[in-house]
Design a protein around this nucleic acid. Sequence first.
DNA 1: GTGTTTGTTATCAA
DNA 2: CTTGATAACAAACA
Length: 289
Amino acid sequence: MPELPEVETIRRDLEKKISTKKIKDIKILATKSVHNKSAEFLKVLVGNNFSHIERRGKLLMFALDKSGKYGYMLVHLKMTGQLIYRNKDRVLAGGHSQTAMNTNVPNKFTRVIFNFSDGGQLFFNDLRRFGYIKLVSTKEKEKIVKNNFGIEPLTSDYIFEDFAKLFQKRQTNVKALLLNQKLISGIGNIYADEACFEAKILPMRKASDLSQAELKKLFEMVAQVLKVSIENRGTTFNNYVDSDGRTGSHINFLKVYGRDGEKCKKCKSIILKIKHAGRGTHYCPNCQK
DNA sequence: GTGTTTGTTATCAA
DNA sequence: CTTGATAACAAACA
């Protein structure tokens, strides 16, 4: 499940690998994964290149070097999307020390292949076909960002007063609020649970019931949890791999997510898991109030 | 066959 | 109009 740290890891690595590389050819293996007409998609991108890659929440936005009708290619990985790059020699370029998952590409879940003129290839894999790739104009991209994404953690726009305001009048619970991309962007099921644990707050608490001190703690822990996960190159629970096809190591540092039945790392209580807000929700019944 | 996994949107109710 | 809760979707696996 790629959330902010996983998507950001991909963005940083991929930008170094593909910016300025000319797109020679594209193979669309699943038309459903591309939300433009195939002919149009190819016409715009072949001969073009991505100048840089932006990110908002969990959405990647590839800026097109030659921008006419379309200025950006948006990529959303949803639950099982992967973007894997292989250079001409198919040698892993990364200098980091993560164990390789050795993802073979292309495979049966490869939906789109970008062939660059230097022989490099970018594979968009998506087991469950929830993700998408879409060309949009710069205007549309700005509209999408404005209408669908709330405050962005790890930026200068992440301000406590704005964060606190989100909670003050809301009748919903803390977890649902954290998962709502229109309010705060980038948090998914893993980091919502982790941030609540670090802030010592039960995810099912009513948002407006949190004290100022609790809000402050949660505000800080959301940022910290995301930041540390980026340092660990994200969490590989099921499907996530970086652009080299390697796993992230943050799973080793999770305190509650996926640890139900195990002992809390702080107090040795048994971590519980319930279904809440339609999602698996993990917490320590002793540490979190 | 059943339950489970989750990011996002659709739908309905208030 | 907003807010909130829930279902639905997709595909594979235990």
